[in-house]
Amino acid sequence: MAAETTQNTHARMQRLAAVRPRLVSFARLQLREPALAEDTVQEALATAIEKDDDFAGRSGYETWVFGILKYKILDALRAQRRQGKWQPFVDDGDNEAIDRQFQQSGHWQVAARPSDWGDPEATFANEHFWQVFDACMIALPDNIARVFSLRELMGLSTADICKETGLKENNCWVILHRARLRLRACIERGYLSEHAPQHGLSERGK
């Protein structure tokens, strides 16, 4: 192995160590079992090291590693499902968290009216936003959070989510609508208030 290659490999190992906290918080949000999330990240890191030659200096190393993690997460999710760990989604009409945001007439409740979060880039750059986001994701019921994160974190289409979960596409849209409304209300309470969130995951990197 040429000296230069060894050096590149070494540099990538350092990048792996640096990206690890982000991999863990991503996996936790998706799998909602901290120990399983750790194991899944370990597997992804092992695969990334093993397949280091495959990467061969293309750009986007972190994105490549996240791609590996996403495959591992999907495997772990399928195992969770097989083991019967998923509560089936029952549309029991329990929309309370959403009903609270609207008047009977269909207009926003005055207290729940969405306000301006400001420049999205500034929002994403704000550590407090991410702490609130983590806390609000944890507060979501598992089966709603799972569909939301499959869509918005894993980037699956709703058609693929149907395959993974056995849901009908229409149900997916209903769930995503609820998830977004609940998250926006939760984030707005936590993010715009002076209050720090009750707990944030400290795992997330910078």
Binding site: F26, P114, D116, P120, R180
Partner: peptide
Amino acid sequence: RPCRHCNAQFDVLHRVGHHFDAEPNA
């Protein structure tokens, strides 16, 4: 206006995934 804010907030939520796997010095 509140719905415009809501719409912008949904967009923010729609983009959170990119902020995990984007390159730090991309």
